[in-house]
């Protein structure tokens, strides 16, 4: 009996080791596949135009920063410095307001019982499933009437009114998971509702808040559709629209310049992700999004 067990253990250990080896090979292959386009972009930006498509090599023959210098210049004397500034002016206030309003509303849903809670929560979830496309025409007409077109108001102001149901849902799930005793203790210590929210709940929610901010930053930074819809003048263009401009402005695409600028525009979200990523999985996991 003992012998059998030992044998079984050895066999299963061996099996495990093979399984592990396979897992490593698999995951490395997948990683290579996933990262390859980005690595290629990274090096292609330094190649000259004939080399980009003719050579398979990931290492350019000579490292040439010319594409960055030339690509940075845009139409009407504008440069990508303008576009980057625009993107930040659009995205940062939107992210801050989204985080603030979503936390506030999520706490209201997660921790209170009130008349009509069920129906209001159902409406909120309904908005999560509502395709944006149904709303764009009336929204456009509304923003037009309010004089918000060609400004960043259509992005920033709605964010202050918790119009991103995904984030509300995410935070509701998180707040529900926090033991009530913590708040009760704070109340006994003389905290009022706002105090409990700001001093107890928000600090606990840090990983989730960081995840939300990261996701919203990335989504707004990359957003193309709404930018195209609401922003007309070139001097207000964020980077996504500027890239489009460099694709369309000439018949012959100067690939190394376009790719160099593409590389620049993906740097802010990537840096932010790399810095924040240790909170990221934790932030999503602790929301207990089990459905």
């Amino acid at each position: 009996m003992k012998m059998n067990n030992l044998k079984y253990n050895n066999l299963s250990k061996f099996k495990n080791r093979i399984g592990r080896a396979f897992s490593y090979v698999f995951i490395v292959l997948v990683c290579l596949m996933m990262i390859f386009p980005v690595i290629w972009l990274l090096t292609a930006a330094f190649k000259d135009n004939t080399e980009i498509f003719s050579s398979m090599s990931l290492i350019p023959k000579s490292w040439d920063f010319g594409a960055f210098k030339k690509g940075w210049q845009s139409v009407n004397g504008l440069t990508y410095s303008n576009y980057f500034l625009n993107s930040f002016l659009l995205v940062i206030p939107t992210v801050i307001l989204t985080v603030a309003s979503s936390c506030l509303v999520a706490y209201g849903f997660a921790r209170f019982h009130f008349k009509g809670k069920k129906i209001l929560f159902a409406i909120m979830m309904g908005m999560l499933l509502l395709p944006e496309q149904v709303l764009i025409i009336p929204r456009y007409l509304l923003y037009n009437r309010l004089g918000w077109l060609d400004s960043y108001k259509p992005f920033i102001i709605p964010a202050g009114f918790a119009t991103y149901p995904f984030f509300i849902y995410m935070m509701v799930q998180f707040f529900r998971g926090i033991p009530k005793e913590l708040e009760e203790a704070a109340i006994i210590d003389g905290c009022n509702s706002a105090g409990v929210f700001l001093r107890v709940m928000i600090p606990l929610a840090k990983p989730s808040i960081i995840s939300m901010a990261l996701l919203q930053f990335v989504w707004r930074w990359n957003d193309f559709f709404s930018n195209m819809l609401y922003i007309n003048s070139v001097e207000k263009y964020p980077v996504t629209l500027a890239l489009r401009l460099s694709l369309d402005s000439t018949d012959l695409i100067i690939w190394n310049q376009v790719l160099a600028m593409t590389l620049c525009t993906i740097i802010p979200p990537v840096i932010l992700y790399v810095i924040m990523q240790r909170y990221f999985v934790e932030g999503i996991s602790t929301t207990g999004l089990k459905g």
Binding site: I27, C31, D223, T240, L243, L259, T262, V270, R278
Partner: peptide, 26 residues
């Protein structure tokens, strides 16, 4: 953790114009 970071990286690039340009080039 490292693999996870790499695997998630493309999603950070999202549906941006940059990625569309990259896809066209590829």
């Amino acid at each position: 953790g490292f693999y996870r970071t790499i695997v998630y990286l493309p999603s950070v690039l999202g549906g941006s114009a940059g990625v569309a340009i990259l896809w066209r080039a590829l």
